[in-house]
Design a protein around this nucleic acid. Structure first.
Lengths: 263, 263
DNA sequence: GTATATGGTTCGGTCCATAGACCATAAAGA
DNA sequence: TCTTTATGGTCTATGGACCGAACCATATAC
């Protein structure tokens, strides 16, 4: 199952550039890349569980690739328990409701082995996002304000966790896009995708959601009010909260694991 | 010649993430990736003009790839006038002294068509590098200080432009590495590589070099003194200077171009 | 003048992706 | 109920990328 998470989204960003010749060349096959794109799309909420991906023939033409290749990608995703394929007229490739491993499982089998990478990722996010927020506050125009308000409304209107995740993504993307800088937008999206993929089963307790909702509102207000300092400060706090949540969660799971080892 | 600059180093960072399914899948062949790595290595000063790359057989084993593939990559680089291959016992693939197009040529044929991308890149750099500098100042340890001092000494000892470039790269890398965050190190290196590739023929007049040398010294001092505010401010100024230089240069070339059009 | 380290060439094999045709199935629509 | 249609499932033939290994050609070191 979890091999599907190994998508090397940030590899170029983290590859050791000290000696550009170190390390083997890996040719990323078409199917591999297609899996990555589809998984990313789901992680970003473009397709939600229960929904069908576009039909194979359409994917093939969208991605400029043969149907056989698309099928190979979908086969891997089926094998991983990520999607389910159904035949017939209203068939298709459906995102499964519960494709994410349980929190504990995910942490033990995926998060812990790559812990150093996540430390770096969280750390970088907490350093970079405040800059992005501040820049957004300085540069946002009326269109950005409209998009941000809309995203925020959707976020508040969200009822279940899945909707929350999608709306959350849209809020943060709206903020990044207010910087009007494609590098920053891409950077922020990559970090978000990576974290969303790794922590899909983030501990979204109602309590957390309440706090996050308030912070999102404050963050959006700061951007709309063109107050970079406030935006930066709130972003720092907001992403600090997420990080703390994950750390607590990991600590609990680690504790459980050590208990089990004792038995 | 310039097709070798098309290496999509930052593509993942700038690809439109709004719809992950938009755009064709491109399989980055082995030769293509090898060219990118080798060009990167030269851009970062790992190999300087006149120097030979490792022999084909060694490259093949280093990169985990067949010799035929390495040869294909080197053939492309030879075709682009980037390297020269010589046979015989002391033969090899030698980086040419003047593989960079002249400034004017480069700007007209490469920089101008992609101007929006460079705007974004410079802009992002000016936003991100101060954060990196400040973080470096907060986190640097004794080892970092030693590496930074050494790099700075080399920079001051550099005599020609080529040496300057290599030393400049090392100073900035030492600063990025002082953050002890692999994402930041990779990000900074990618931005630097991209800019170095695109602006290899940066206008390094003696005047500029003098100013840059002073700023490098100040920046290093701020990091060594653990003064994040100063580090951040100097970084902002330093990268602002580079940006201004490029803008001036482009403006001049544009003026020339419009004159030529009149004739 | 011989040995050696390098680039230059060739050949057969394997795997990947393409293109296109055709089959199977389930639902929609007449 | 029957036909149509939109989907996934299967097969085959073809071209290309990469590999592995051997061998050739050349220039320098010893």
């Amino acid at each position: 199952m979890s091999e599907i998470f190994e998508a090397p989204l940030l590899n170029e960003l983290q590859r050791d550039n000290t000696d550009p010749l170190a390390g083997p060349i890996v040719v990323r096959n078409a199917p591999e890349q297609i899996v990555e794109r589809l998984v990313t799309a789901v992680a970003l909420g473009v397709y939600v569980p229960g929904q069908a991906l576009p039909p194979e023939r359409e994917l093939a033409s969208l991605l400029g690739v043969s149907r056989a290749t698309v099928r190979e990608a979908l086969r891997r995703m089926t094998d991983s328990g990520f999607i389910e394929q159904r035949r017939g007229r209203n068939g298709g490739s459906f995102v499964l409701e519960d494709w994410r491993p349980s929190s504990a499982d995910l942490i033990r089998r995926h998060l812990m082995p790559n812990w150093a990478r996540f430390e770096a990722l969280f750390d970088a996010r907490q350093l970079l996002e405040p800059v992005i927020a501040a820049t957004a506050a300085l540069r946002r125009n009326d269109g950005d304000v409209a998009a941000l308000s809309q995203a925020l409304d959707d976020y508040h209107a969200a009822t279940d966790r899945e909707e929350s995740r999608v709306a959350d993504e849209r809020v943060h993307r709206a903020i990044a896009e207010s910087t009007h800088n494609s590098v920053l937008v891409g950077l922020s999206a990559q970090i978000r995708t990576r974290i969303s993929l790794d922590l899909g089963a983030e501990p979204y307790t109602p309590e957390i959601r309440r706090v996050a909702a308030v912070q999102h509102g404050l963050l959006a207000d700061a951007v709309i009010d063109q107050d970079p300092e406030r935006a930066s400060a709130i972003a720092l706090e907001h992403f600090g909260l997420t990080e703390k949540l994950v750390r607590d969660l990991v600590a609990r799971v680690q504790e459980l694991a050590s208990l089990e080892t004792d038995e």
